[in-house]
Amino acid sequence: MKLNSLVRPLILVAATTGATAFAQAAKPAAPAAPATAAQKVVIDRALLNAFKVLPTRFEDAKNPITAEKVELGRMLYFDTRLSKNQDVSCNSCHDLNKYGVDGKPTSPGHKKQLGGRNSPTVYNAGGHILQFWDGRAPNLEEQAKGPILNPVEMAMPNAERVVETVKSIPGYVTSFQKAFPGEADPVTYDNLAKAIGAFERQLVTPSPFDKYLAGDENALTEAQKAGLKKFLDQGCQTCHNGPAIGGSLQKLGLVVPFQTKDQGRFEVTKNEADRMIFRVPTLRNVTKTGPWFHDGSVKELPTAVKLMAQHQFGKQISDDDAKSIVVFLDALTGELPKSYIAKPKLPASGPKTPKPDPS
């Protein structure tokens, strides 16, 4: 079955639900006074069923997580030798000490070329239904293969060159043997991607909101609860849901067209129904991962909130409401797993390891 045929029902459900939320949101309502310490905000916990407490890791039966795979994947994630000129690694664009982003609209790669889309965070990405802004990769393992061979990003000419490079590093050969025991030739491009995927599946950042979802009413401040109530009243959970609070596919400009040259998933499938379909970004750590949107064009998060209300629901919300929602969004900021993301010592190059190639 084609991936696109699986995805379209998800889009249809989201679009239908979004239209319902828009109809409800369009009803005039009296402006609510800002919450104070003396005012208790009441949240209908039934509405919280749209979310899920973040797991400790995102499992995939096709790629069981082991300590050996994670150790190998961590090294590969930080290794610039996986790029043609040996100056770009996964961490270059998805800096784990900066909540998995580089803070730039689009990221520089080989020969400082700029990519066409903003580099999204890798934290909690295991909770996404699909990977990349256009959903062209079904999982983290397939996603890991893309940037290495992309001529604008890491620019390796082919998978064979990558495998040749890794095999020239004695320490990696040993690590692959440990991570994939019993395989006659464990150093493969697929296994390289599996190791990186295993490492990324444990890049999770539980936040105060997870404690709140689990029943701790004191995990959020009253101001954060007020922002959450506005978030729910607007219907934002229509798209931003699940453990990653995002990660499905949705049309950008569901009600009011969004002007952009990038047509999203249509660029991959050339199917008219996929025009302007993008993967919904996770809202976890969103206050730390700007600039926002697929092109990194929005520098202020309240502006992003107002634009989403306009384009997805056809509604103009006030500056105060947008700021209140951002207060809630800050409760989605988790603590970085410092020991887990510490840069490891990389194995030394061998005599046959290729030299940097700036061409």
Score class of each variant (00 low, 15 high):
63 N>Y: 04
64 P>G: 09
66 T>I: 02
70 V>W: 00
71 E>Y: 04
71 E>Q: 13
72 L>P: 00
72 L>N: 08
74 R>G: 01
76 L>Y: 00
82 L>E: 09
82 L>W: 10
82 L>S: 05
83 S>C: 10
84 K>N: 15
84 K>D: 10
85 N>Y: 13
85 N>V: 06
87 D>C: 09
87 D>K: 02
88 V>Q: 13
90 C>S: 12
90 C>Q: 08
92 S>D: 14
93 C>P: 06
95 D>A: 11
95 D>Q: 14
96 L>A: 12
96 L>E: 00
100 G>M: 03
100 G>R: 09
101 V>K: 01
102 D>C: 02
109 G>F: 04
110 H>G: 01
112 K>E: 15
115 G>D: 14
117 R>V: 10
118 N>S: 13
118 N>I: 04
120 P>H: 00
122 V>I: 15
123 Y>F: 15
125 A>V: 11
125 A>S: 15
126 G>P: 00
126 G>Q: 11
126 G>W: 00
126 G>H: 06
127 G>C: 13
128 H>C: 08
128 H>T: 14
133 W>P: 14
138 P>L: 10
141 E>H: 11
143 Q>P: 07
145 K>P: 06
148 I>P: 00
149 L>S: 11
151 P>I: 07
152 V>R: 15
153 E>D: 15
153 E>Y: 14
155 A>M: 14
158 N>K: 08
162 V>Q: 10
162 V>R: 06
162 V>A: 06
164 E>C: 06
165 T>Y: 06
165 T>A: 11
166 V>A: 07
167 K>T: 13
169 I>H: 05
171 G>Q: 12
172 Y>G: 11
173 V>A: 11
174 T>H: 06
174 T>Q: 12
176 F>Q: 12
177 Q>E: 11
178 K>R: 03
178 K>N: 03
181 P>G: 01
182 G>D: 10
183 E>K: 12
183 E>P: 01
184 A>M: 05
187 V>F: 02
188 T>W: 03
188 T>G: 04
190 D>T: 14
191 N>G: 03
196 I>N: 00
196 I>Q: 01
196 I>Y: 02
199 F>V: 13
200 E>F: 03
200 E>Y: 05
200 E>V: 05
201 R>E: 09
201 R>D: 07
202 Q>F: 03
202 Q>K: 10
